[in-house]
Simulated assay, not measured.
Amino acid sequence: MTDVHEATKVAGSTRELVILSLYPRDMNIYGDRGNVLALTRRARAHGYDPVVIDLNPGDPMPAHVDVVIGGGGQDSGQGRVAADLLDRKADFHALAEVGTPMLLVCGLYQLFGHRFITHTGETLEGIGVLDVETRGGSDRMIGNIVLESDDLGEIIGYENHSGNTTLGPGSRPLGRVLQGAGNNPTSGEEGARTRNVIGTYLHGSLLPKNPAVIDFLIGEAAKARYGTFAPSVEVSETVTRARASAKRRPR
């Protein structure tokens, strides 16, 4: 049964934003749940009413979705959700086609691509929203990572993965790697974007340290639903200090 576990209502307000949290029981490692918390808090600060709906295997899709967000998991967790995700392939392609913003971290980044081939040779078919393919490797890419994005600026996070992801022509990188490994040890790129869908290996969790990415997700959702987005909150000094501290830490 769908769990609506957070709904903040303001008297007389119609500025609701529905956030679909994908597979939190299985895909929630390295602080990825913090992305949902950061997104809801900043949405409130901008004057919206976030409603978070958890989607676990077998749950019905909600009638309306404004933002999709999902995290990473162990290979076993990916196996549990892969079949359920394939059953929803048409739903997520339809959402992507109309510009619904999505943030997909690590394991769900891989499953929103064409396929993930594990280090043991097992193939998990993805849904192909992102034009990427991933193969599990023997070496892990671990540590703080800094990217430069043309439209989102400097993005800071923490990577911990052994997947080697390559992009096809239907996706572009999220950013250029300034520090760290990224999609694989040789490309110099991290993540993937198709329309308003973002895939990335950045944990940490990502959003608390990157308000520009949060505002991209909220802004695209708000413009699609209400026709406009006017940011109404600045970046706090705490976030600025956290970003600076993360950049200084060695890998």
Rank of each mutant, 00 (worst) to 15 (best):
residue 45 A to H: 07
residue 45 A to M: 13
residue 46 H to L: 08
residue 47 G to V: 03
residue 50 P to E: 08
residue 52 V to A: 03
residue 54 D to I: 03
residue 57 P to Q: 06
residue 62 P to K: 07
residue 64 H to D: 14
residue 65 V to A: 07
residue 65 V to Y: 02
residue 66 D to N: 15
residue 66 D to P: 04
residue 66 D to Q: 09
residue 67 V to P: 03
residue 69 I to L: 15
residue 70 G to L: 12
residue 70 G to I: 04
residue 72 G to M: 08
residue 72 G to Q: 05
residue 75 D to M: 07
residue 75 D to Q: 10
residue 76 S to C: 07
residue 76 S to Y: 12
residue 79 G to Y: 02
residue 80 R to S: 06
residue 80 R to H: 03
residue 80 R to E: 12
residue 80 R to T: 12
residue 84 D to A: 11
residue 84 D to N: 12
residue 87 D to H: 05
residue 87 D to M: 11
residue 88 R to N: 10
residue 88 R to S: 02
residue 90 A to C: 00
residue 92 F to Q: 01
residue 92 F to H: 00
residue 94 A to K: 15
residue 95 L to P: 02
residue 95 L to D: 01
residue 95 L to F: 09
residue 96 A to N: 12
residue 99 G to Q: 11
residue 99 G to R: 03
residue 100 T to H: 00
residue 102 M to R: 05
residue 104 L to Y: 13
residue 104 L to I: 12
residue 105 V to I: 15
residue 106 C to P: 09
residue 107 G to H: 00
residue 107 G to S: 15
residue 107 G to C: 01
residue 107 G to P: 05
residue 107 G to E: 03
residue 108 L to K: 03
residue 108 L to F: 02
residue 109 Y to M: 12
residue 109 Y to C: 09
residue 114 H to I: 05
residue 117 I to H: 04
residue 119 H to I: 10
residue 121 G to N: 06
residue 121 G to T: 10
residue 123 T to L: 05
residue 126 G to H: 05
residue 127 I to V: 11
residue 128 G to W: 03
residue 129 V to K: 02
residue 131 D to G: 02
residue 131 D to E: 00
residue 132 V to N: 08
residue 133 E to C: 01
residue 133 E to M: 06
residue 135 R to E: 08
residue 136 G to H: 01
residue 137 G to C: 07
residue 137 G to L: 13
residue 138 S to Y: 06
residue 138 S to E: 14
residue 139 D to H: 06
residue 140 R to C: 03
residue 141 M to F: 14
residue 142 I to F: 01
residue 142 I to N: 07
residue 142 I to E: 13
residue 143 G to H: 09
residue 143 G to R: 06
residue 143 G to E: 10
residue 144 N to W: 10
residue 147 L to N: 07
residue 148 E to I: 00
residue 148 E to Y: 01
residue 149 S to V: 04
residue 150 D to P: 09
residue 151 D to I: 03
residue 153 G to R: 09
residue 156 I to H: 13
residue 158 Y to C: 06
residue 158 Y to F: 15
residue 159 E to T: 02
residue 159 E to R: 09
residue 160 N to E: 07
residue 161 H to K: 04
residue 161 H to Q: 08
residue 164 N to W: 05
residue 165 T to R: 10
residue 166 T to H: 14
residue 168 G to Y: 10
residue 168 G to T: 10
residue 168 G to N: 12
residue 169 P to Q: 10
residue 170 G to E: 12
residue 171 S to P: 10
residue 173 P to S: 11
residue 174 L to V: 07
residue 175 G to H: 04
residue 175 G to F: 03
residue 177 V to G: 00
residue 179 Q to A: 11
residue 182 G to E: 04
residue 182 G to V: 03
